[in-house]
Nucleic acid binder design. Structure first.
Length: 822
RNA sequence: GCCCCCGUAGCCCAAUGGCAGAGGCAAGCCCCUUAAAAGGGCUGCGUUGUGGGUUCGAGUCCCACCGGGGGCACCA
């Protein structure tokens, strides 16, 4: 079919314009320092190349593209890059299955996705493309690791870690959700391993405090999740003496005011301290208990229904304020890696302690008078406010007063001080898998951990494939003996490379900086260019990264800030979490068989109709149930818009005097410009599209039953429609623009400005209510005074029957409403 | 259990505290057509989830509850 025919053929438009756009290269960001236009940085979370693009990509990139294209139309200098998060497990699993190298699968998928992105018409600057699995990229992961290492922010330690038996690797805490692997859903087990960590806990305070910058720009939900995850709490450290031990033991508590109510003391069962202080008589009981606890999975251990367990350690602690002897127990409800791994138990005012006390018959002592029933009787701890009782000098004080007072007393005696604790743990980055960045450390029997010198980076991956990648509990790199055995960079003696690779979240923690110059060779990114582009004006991605990628990236940004490499402290000024595309009320999945293929949708309805459907479905953060959507209807609308543009283009030439055009249509057009501008800026794309549909209908009516297709107002409406549609449906917009007699590209035509004179209404309908019920409508001037409108309303024949003399009250909201209370 | 968001027409969704309906789907009708498709047009009486409250006026604000979604949940 000829594209000149007045028939909308989306596939023909795609075939026609895609190659033309490649030549035009309209979306390259401009680095010229003489270019003083406002710079805007728009970024969509980069994709993992797991096959072709899916419906979810279709939505995010449609949303991001509208924003970027709007900025382009406004004349901003826009950076809108694309790349691939191309290290990761699926490639490795595919390689094992096919007896191939992970790179083959990875780069083939990247090409597939790149082709799909181009077809999808996304306004990327393709010259900035990057792949994290390229040595030219991951060498800078290693370079950054070295910087972290120098600053003491990368360290190795032994301890219990999360092990995924399915993926055969350790995971960071953030990657364990409800005791299961965030990737594959397998139940996590605990293992004792020595691993590399990044010291994100050093930044815990700043990660919380800097969220003040993000208020309003980020969804509250994400900020709340990060706040919860970091889990900052304020309280006090209190020292207890343990009988028969010289060193006092410190506990952390958020309720130092309840210190007089401490009736026992609990040490984490797995803490070294438990073993250290247990009496000889109880040692065996402790060992038995520890063995039981070790057998429990996290899921069992964290179950809220689980009854408290524990064992008496045969010794006593001394309460520092009243000298009371309280028994010391070991239990698994106290965690060894939070606070000091030991607590003072105040059963009257802490539910966990109360549960434990009731289970083992320990005393309950009320020290806060709350007016509620005795916790010992009810089994419900009283955690609220109240007056202190049974607490010596604290008696009668409120909670806040008591906390301040007791901290003062403890500080004076040197047995306590204010303290802050965090739930956040350091970020474990070692992975026992192949397809990732090798950790650039050499283990030397004499020199210890020696970083690979910067000039020797990158440490590239050895050529392993197929069965050599089979997970066996240690990194596949350990099997590459030639690669592993190297000379120590320090002493030259025989040494071995670290065989783990980095968590791929390291790759994505700074990629947005590299886009400013992805081929830069003097560092991970060009500091000067980042100064000009950063931070990102708008970031878009799924809420599944609320505490993973987004937390890590914020951490990296702060470290880079401290290194003097970036001048901002938060990477993303604004964040949008798009909804998911689901089908028939459920997430699409292979097992449910309810998957919808993006490519097939595009083949059936065209790119424009699919993009339009994604954006018209509802607010961008809402889920889209594809079963409720009609891409066919979107296509129908586009055909309608296409005809309007075609007919207007055929009937007139560009450059006519618009002021002579049909005033009624011109008013609609300019009101549409005004509204769509505001709606797009507020990211209310579904409503903006509804306005474009109205404009299309108005133009249609003007052609059919009004001034006709040749009227300059029809041309004006069609041209503005083309420009506005270019944000959403670039192909039909481009074709329409051409048919209207303009050279491509409509993407750079410039955003229209509404003529204020055409926004003024000649008359307004004022509603007259009597006691809230509409009784009359009056056509009045928009600038009518309140007094005039009031007089008109009261004089109305339709209103008078409802009035009985002088009204009690008249509310006038000129020019739209009068409410008369009789 | 605690916290947050959402409940508007058969469906997806609009509505600065001011006429409950912008847009779309579905449905029905009309025009065009030999006919159908395509195209053009017309048609919206609904406890705004329920019950209270504030207000001249509540879909909108407040309280309680119901339903759906999300987050947190032995971190002392």
């Amino acid at each position: 079919m000829e594209v000149d025919e007045p028939v909308y053929d989306p596939q023909a438009l795609q075939a026609k314009w895609l190659p033309r756009w490649e030549e035009l290269n309209s979306f390259a960001a401009v680095e010229d320092p003489a270019d003083t236009r406002p710079r805007k940085y728009m970024l969509d979370m980069f994709p993992y190349p797991s096959g072709d693009l899916h419906m979810g990509h279709g939505e995010v990139f449609a949303i991001g593209d509208v924003i970027a294209r709007y900025w382009f139309q406004k004349g901003d200098n826009v950076l809108h890059p694309i790349g691939w998060d191309s290290f990761g497990l699926p490639a490795e699993n595919a390689a094992i299955k096919r007896n191939a190298h992970p790179a083959e699968w990875t780069y083939a998928n990247i090409e597939t996705q790149a082709t799909s992105f181009k077809r999808y018409g996304v306004s990327f600057d393709w010259s900035r493309r990057l792949h994290t699995s390229d040595p030219e990229y991951y060498r800078w992961n290693q370079w950054l690791f070295n910087r972290f290492f120098e600053r003491g922010l990368a360290y190795r330690k032994g301890g219990l870690v999360n092990w995924c038996p399915q993926d055969q690797t350790v995971l960071a805490n953030e990657q364990v959700v409800d005791g299961r692997c965030e990737r594959c859903g397998a139940e996590i087990v605990r293992r004792e391993l020595t691993q590399w960590y990044l010291k994100i806990t050093d930044y815990a305070d700043r990660l919380i405090d800097d969220m003040a910058q993000l208020e309003g720009g980020w969804p509250d939900r994400v900020l709340t999740m990060q706040r919860n995850w970091i889990g900052r709490s304020a309280g006090a450290d209190v020292q207890f003496r343990i009988e028969g031990r010289d060193e006092p033991v410190t506990v952390y508590t958020t309720r130092p005011d309840t210190l007089y109510g401490a009736t026992f003391f609990v040490v984490a069962a797995d803490a070294d301290l438990a073993e250290e202080i247990v009496s000889p008589e109880q040692r065996e009981a402790l060992e038995v208990y520890r063995a039981e606890v070790a057998k429990l999975s996290d899921i069992e251990r964290l179950s809220t229904e689980k009854e408290k367990t524990g064992v008496f350690l045969g010794i006593h602690a001394i309460n520092p304020v009243n000298g009371e002897r309280i028994p010391v127990w070991a239990a698994d409800y106290v965690l060894s890696d939070y606070g000091h791994g030991a607590i003072m138990a105040v059963p009257a005012h802490d539910q966990r302690d109360l549960d434990f006390a009731r289970r083992f018959g320990l005393p309950v002592k009320v020290v806060v008078e709350t007016g509620l029933d005795d916790p010992a009787e009810t089994g419900v701890a009283t955690t609220g406010e109240g007056r202190m009782v049974n607490s010596g000098p604290l008696d009668g004080l409120s909670k806040a007063e008591a906390i301040a007072a007791i901290i003062g007393i403890l500080a004076e005696r040197g047995t306590g001080r204010p303290a802050v604790n965090f739930r956040l743990r350091d970020w474990l980055i070692s992975r026992q898998r192949f397809w990732g960045t090798p950790i650039p450390i050499i283990h030397c029997p004499d020199c210890g951990e020696v970083p690979v010198p910067d000039e020797q980076l990158p440490v590239t991956l050895p050529d392993l494939r197929g069965a050599a990648l089979q997970p066996r509990g240690v990194s596949p790199l350990a099997g590459a003996t030639e690669w592993v055995n190297v000379a120590c960079p320090k002493c030259g003696g025989p040494a071995q490379r670290d065989t783990d690779t980095m968590d791929t979240f390291v790759d994505s923690s700074w990629y947005f900086l590299r886009y400013c110059d992805p081929h830069y060779t003097d560092g991970p990114f060009d500091v000067e260019k980042v100064r000009k582009w950063g931070p990102i004006d708008q970031y878009i991605g799924g809420s599944e990264h609320a505490v993973l990628h987004l937390l890590y990236t914020r951490f990296f940004t702060k470290v880079l800030h401290d290194m003097g490499m970036v001048d901002f402290t938060e990477p993303f000024a604004r964040l949008l979490n798009q909804g998911q595309v689901i089908n028939q009320g459920k997430a699409m999945s292979k097992t449910l068989g309810n998957g919808v293929d993006l490519g097939q949708q595009i083949d059936a309805y065209g790119v424009d109709a699919v993009r339009l459907t994604m954006l018209f479905a509802g607010p961008p953060e809402d889920d889209i149930d594809w079963a409720d959507m009609s891409p066919a209807a979107s296509q129908k609308f586009l055909a309608r818009a296409f005809r309007v543009m075609t007919e207007a283009g055929a009937a007139s030439a560009p450059g006519a005097d618009v002021s002579a055009g049909d005033q009624e249509l011109r008013r609609v057009t300019h009101r549409t410009i005004d509204e769509v501008t505001k709606l797009v800026e507020g990211y209310r794309f579904n409503v903006a599209i509804a306005r474009m549909m109205e404009l299309t209908s108005a133009a249609r009516k003007a052609i059919d039953g009004g001034p006709g297709a040749a009227d300059p107002a029809v041309r004006e409406a069609a041209e503005i429609l083309a420009v506005m549609l270019s944000l959403v449906t670039p192909y039909v917009a481009e074709e329409g623009w051409e048919r209207l007699g303009h050279a491509p590209s409509v993407a750079k035509a410039g955003w229209p400005q509404a003529d204020p004179a055409l926004l003024v209404q000649e008359s307004v309908t004022a509603v007259v209510q009597v006691a809230g019920k509409v009784r009359d409508r009056l056509e009045v001037a928009p600038d009518i005074s309140e007094a005039d409108l009031r007089a008109l309303a009261i004089a109305s024949d339709k209103v008078r029957p409802y009035l009985d003399g002088e009204p009690r009250k008249v509310i006038v909201r000129a020019p739209k409403l009068v409410n008369i209370v009789p």
